[in-house]
Amino acid sequence: MTLVAGAGMHPWGKWGRPFVEYGVAAAREALRDAGLHWTDVQFLVGADTIRNGYPGFVSGSAFAQALGWTGARIASCYAACASGAHALEIARTRILAGLCDVALVIGADSTPKGFFKPVGGDRPDDPDWLRFRLLGATNPAYFALYARRRMALYGSTIEDFAAVKVKNARAGSLNPNARYRKTVSAQEVLNSPMVADPLRLMDICATSDGGAALVLVSESFARRRGLSGVRIAAVSTVTPAFPNTVLEMPNFATDSSAGTAPPERPFRSSIAHAAYEEAGVEPGDLSLAEVYDLSTALELDWYEDIGLCAPGEAEKLVRAGETSLGGRIPVNPSGGLASFGEAIPAQAIAQVCELIWQLRGTAGDRQVEGALVGLAVNQGLFGHGSAIIATR
């Protein structure tokens, strides 16, 4: 069993400082939270940032150097928006294999102004570069395609999308680590500038600076040191199955000879359900969920993907207040990306931080009463995804 003994964050914002600074601050907070020291850490995993030069590509080393060389083993990994979850899985696996007792997972980012663009110059063999050049599919345009799809399939309205922002802004107003801490009205959302029809500025998450960290320990170490922790019950990092019928970025390298039977579930749904199977829980067991709300419309899709309701029923949950703080199954009680923005290597780790605080009962004014089981899910480009289940 792997336990999270400590969680820490550097507040999100646009601070304009090196990403390592945010990661080290989050790591030190997580270590203090666990009652441990950096010299207790045997293994450090850094979630990489690809927009911050060479140190960002070897973030494990960059963080270890900043904290002070101790001889600890390190790893660095990149998995787009799921980087932090993949980093956590590397650390968790090493503990479960009996190769270490204490692991530190860190993700941090310092982001440019505006939406994320491909890195590395002109790369005609890079699908991320090609989607910009051939399709004009910036991230906001991509989010808008999902929103239009939802409107066409289920009759979703812009008022439904605005209601998601209102809900998340209220939760974010109670979170000291959130970048945006003001409540908003539906009319404010609907009056904000159009970005990619039907999505307006307040429907789309920003790009942000920030950092998050977790201290993972083995059950035996926790027992020896008298530490308490929240259990990581499952981590899913499954890839899509071919043929993939979910709206996706163009993939120019799919080998159909490796085809499998048509998937039972769409990709995002399969990510979550693989975690349910590993943890031995069902959607109805969840006390809360942190989902990847790149846009307000996408949050609604996630409700259905993780099994909170049938396809086309997500709007009913929002209208009834069931996914709000105080509702039956609060979603994004942290405030979500709507309140934080994207700091890519940190965001999956930040989701787990929220699960830890909620399951401990230390989330303050946004506390979900009696929280026992939490799910955090996200999806990165080109088959990267993650679902993490934590239990008390």
Rank of each mutant, 00 (worst) to 15 (best):
R179C: 01
L88V: 09
V230D: 08
I271G: 11
G8V: 09
A233W: 10
P311L: 11
A7N: 13
A75P: 02
G364M: 06
G280E: 09
R360A: 11
P345A: 14
G383E: 05
K117I: 00
C353K: 15
A376T: 08
I50S: 07
E299Q: 11
E369A: 15
G385T: 03
I356M: 14
P18E: 14
S334T: 04
I349Q: 09
A314C: 09
P18S: 14
P262Q: 10
N191H: 13
G13L: 12
F161H: 07
F116D: 00
A64S: 13
R328E: 11
L288Q: 06
F252D: 04
G155I: 00
G13V: 05
G326Q: 13
N332L: 09
E299N: 08
A163R: 14
G35T: 11
Y146F: 12
V20Y: 06
A212F: 09
E277Q: 15
T183E: 15
G380M: 11
D293G: 10
R133T: 00
G98N: 10
R73Y: 04
G321F: 09
A26W: 02
G53V: 02
T391L: 12
T245A: 14
G68H: 14
T157F: 04
S83Y: 11
K316A: 15
S76L: 06
D209S: 05
W69S: 07
A162P: 01
P330H: 14
A141E: 06
L216K: 02
R224I: 00
G136R: 12
T39H: 15
A80K: 10
V195F: 13
S208V: 01
F43T: 02
A213L: 06
E290K: 12
S324V: 01
D126A: 03
V246G: 02
G364H: 13
V24A: 12
T49Y: 08
I90P: 01
V166D: 06
L44W: 03
L134T: 00
L286K: 09
A97P: 01
Y146V: 00
I389Y: 06
L104A: 06
T296M: 09
K117Y: 02
S334M: 10
S61K: 14
V4W: 07
A241N: 12
P263G: 11
D125A: 08
A163W: 07
L375V: 04
W357I: 03
P283E: 03
T157G: 03
A348H: 14
A87T: 01
A152I: 00
M151E: 03
A163D: 05
T39G: 10
A314V: 03
Y142M: 06
R265V: 00
R123A: 00
G56C: 07
G71K: 07
